[in-house]
């Protein structure tokens, strides 16, 4: 019935998804720890210090605490949508890790339209945020959801355009191909050829992942917690994990597109990929703990009045140069 290649693919897919799940979990733990430590040191305090040596087990303890808490649904909330939202937020993330090339041979699925797959499925997150805010029967939640939707929709466009500029240069949507098309040394990376696209991508990435200074959907000093105001326990935990997973995805893609992916001096490999991804993640953390939050209309103005024209200009210029 099923031919051998299909079975082979299926097994490979299952392994990949399981690996991606583990990867998401590990990343969330490590990132939470790093973020809290980093924030602590920026603020000249030690950060978590009590659970395990230097507080290294703190994220685990937090995870356990989250799981132990009561799953609570407010009166008047739509139960189905309310519980669907966090799952919808996390599930597509697992797919996003599949086409990313971690090393020369280390790709779960070498999809020829890899970057499109990532962009397509990452958009599902908006739906999750919208459902979460809407189904909570909470006014702050609705405001948060409305913000999240307009923000994500807006920032996807310059993100896409800056990605397109890179694909124009390499002529491929395949992430492995994009990686290998770049050289080992920093001056051979796409960053040098496309600095503007890199900048636009980075700013849009902050917007897409709802990270400070663009964390308006959950701006706690304005909307208490925005779309996840009413979520407790693992409902909140899933959103939390998804947020960190999206950060990893966005930074991974950025590494592939602009920083040479797994290419690096001396020897190519996953170590270069990880180092670059985490460097970007640290930048995100650093920015979060430095800046105040922008206002909502300013956020959209930055997008529509600055990023979008710049991205279009950059794309046209790239096309023009490529054609020459």
């Amino acid at each position: 019935m099923m031919n051998a290649i299909d079975v082979h693919m299926l097994i490979r897919l299952i392994i990949a998804v399981v690996a991606a799940m583990a990867w998401v979990g590990i990343n969330a733990l490590v990132l939470v720890y790093c973020e809290r430590k980093f924030a602590g040191h920026i603020q000249r305090r030690p950060g978590p210090f009590e659970v395990g040596p230097h507080g290294i087990l703190q994220p685990l303890a937090d995870g356990l605490k989250l799981m132990g808490k009561q799953l609570f649904r407010p009166a008047g909330a739509d139960a189905f949508l309310f519980w669907l939202a966090p799952m919808l937020s996390l599930l597509p993330v697992l797919l996003l890790f599949l086409p990313i090339p971690y090393g020369p041979m280390l790709t779960a699925m070498n999809v020829s339209l890899g970057i499109l797959l990532i962009l397509a499925f990452s958009s599902l997150n908006v739906l999750a945020l919208l459902l979460a805010g809407w189904s909570s029967n909470n006014k702050w939640g609705i405001l948060g959801a409305a913000r999240a939707v307009s923000q994500s929709v807006a920032y996807e466009i310059p993100l896409l355009l800056s990605v397109l500029a890179v694909t124009f240069m390499t002529g491929s949507f395949n992430l492995s191909a994009i990686s290998t098309s770049q050289g080992a040394w920093p001056w051979q990376w796409n960053l040098m050829a496309q600095p503007l696209a890199f900048f636009i991508y980075l700013v849009s990435a902050f917007g897409e992942t709802n990270r400070a200074p663009f964390d308006l959907a959950e701006a706690e000093s304005e909307l208490t917690a925005g779309f996840h105001t009413e979520y407790s326990s693992m409902g909140f935990g899933l959103f939390f994990m998804a947020e960190y997973a999206y950060m990893v995805v966005v930074c991974s893609v950025c590494t592939v597109l602009f920083l040479g992916g797994f290419r690096g001096p001396v020897a190519d490999g996953w170590w270069w990929f990880l180092a670059k991804t985490y460097a970007l993640l640290f930048l995100m953390i650093w920015v979060r703990w430095t800046y105040p939050r922008v206002r909502f209309d300013q956020l959209l103005n930055i997008n529509w009045k600055w990023l979008l024209p710049l991205a279009v200009f950059n794309l046209l210029a790239t096309a023009f140069v490529m054609k020459l």
Partner: peptide
């Protein structure tokens, strides 16, 4: 105030 505006770090410096 800066905390209200979304920056977490300055309050730690001011409390120093």
């Amino acid at each position: 105030y800066i905390l209200d505006l979304g920056a977490f770090t300055p309050i730690m410096y001011s409390f120093d």
